[in-house]
């Protein structure tokens, strides 16, 4: 690996991006417009149904509703029951008002938890209590505290990550295919530049631009919406950096051999659209079929968003998102090596 050669390609690619004013402007305008639009459309509104968390529920237990929760409550309309493995995982959601009540399904005292600043929590609590027979033992109430995570606070990392995904996959994958088609790669092949050096330069150039865009869009959007970040900004930036790397590396694999821009477009759409819908950019996959959740776990975007939201909304530290960071690092290394192995300079 020759870093001087890599640096030469890195700077050349940056010149190209910054001087292409249309593409450069759109990279900032697109996420900003989406955030602005969704911010005003949804404001602070949350989900319509009341969300009831039940624990402990073992993974794959489809009959978790057969519990000590009264039938009258289980059969209530506009209630969505969400299983949690333990109290801790449910409590976090309740604290941010992602669910409205949390119930211990095995508790003989019908223990339940409520966020005392949630109006929806108050209503669903009354429904829960009214569902008991008159002479039955009173349920044991516990209170947690925490401000609601606004939809825009939850959505914001999703939009940033989505923009990152499109920019990484199209900005790397599509551009490399175009370079192959017009002979730019062939010209570079006539030099000592190696595939790994070229691809690394492409990846790092794009990540530099992505982080720059991220910072500008973040600052601009924060002036309007005042986002809440409970964890550290440095940890958040690191997670976005890793996520960006893994997405760029994925783009390089797609670009390793393609010679047709039309075919590359098709493949990129095939990859980006499922990622956008299954990686929780717009809505939570909680309650989705387990096979779909498993499929989503193969996407680096899912891990980027999980980690970013944990840090931003739950105040998690880097060590608490280490598994997501590890997966993103692994995806980056594997994709980069695979891309270098498969890479072809010629048409």
């Amino acid at each position: 690996m020759n870093f001087s050669r890599m640096w030469a390609m890195f700077t050349a690619r940056n010149y190209e991006f910054f001087r292409d004013r249309a593409a450069f402007g759109w990279n900032f305008a697109f996420p900003f417009l989406i955030i602005l639009g969704f911010g005003f459309i949804f404001g602070g509104r949350e989900y319509q149904d009341f969300k009831v968390g039940l624990f402990p529920v073992e993974a794959g237990d489809e009959f978790f509703l057969k519990s000590s929760v009264p039938d009258a409550f289980q059969n209530g309309r506009y209630l969505e029951f969400i299983p949690f493995a333990d109290l801790r995982s449910g409590e976090g959601k309740l604290r941010h008002q992602k669910i409205d009540i949390l119930i211990d399904r095995n508790s003989p005292t019908h223990a339940y938890w409520i966020n005392d600043s949630s109006p929806k929590g108050y209503i669903v609590e009354q429904l829960f209590l009214a569902s008991f027979e008159k002479n039955e033992i009173r349920a044991e109430k516990q209170v947690v505290q925490g401000l609601q995570v606004r939809y825009i606070d939850w959505l914001f990392p999703g939009i940033l990550a989505m923009n990152m995904m499109f920019s990484a996959l199209w900005g790397v994958g599509y551009v490399v295919v175009r370079y192959r088609k017009n002979g730019t790669l062939k010209r570079l092949k006539a030099t000592p530049l190696t595939a790994l050096e070229y691809l690394s330069a492409q990846m790092f150039s794009r990540i530099f631009l992505l982080m720059f865009t991220l910072a500008v869009v973040w600052l601009g959007s924060d002036l309007i919406f005042h986002f809440q970040v409970l964890g550290s900004y440095a940890a958040l930036a690191f997670v976005f950096f890793l996520g960006g790397l893994s997405l760029c590396a994925m783009g390089l694999v797609l670009a390793a051999r393609g010679t047709s821009e039309e075919f590359a477009s098709g493949i990129l759409n095939f990859i980006t659209w499922p990622m956008m819908f299954l990686s929780e950019v717009w809505f939570s996959m909680e309650g989705a079929p387990s096979w779909l959740q498993k499929l989503a776990s193969f996407f680096p975007l899912t891990h980027l968003l999980t980690a970013a939201r944990k840090i931003m909304n739950d105040g998690a530290s880097l060590s608490e998102v280490s598994s997501e960071c590890f997966i993103m690092t692994l995806v980056t290394i594997l994709c980069l090596l695979l891309a270098a192995y498969l890479f072809s300079w010629n048409e």
Binding site: A12, R13, Y15, E16, R19, D20, Y179, N182, G183, T184, K186, R187, A190
Partner: peptide, 9 residues
């Protein structure tokens, strides 16, 4: 080369 292209911009 007979047919080639250079980096844009």
């Amino acid at each position: 080369f007979q047919h080639t292209s250079l980096l844009n911009f």
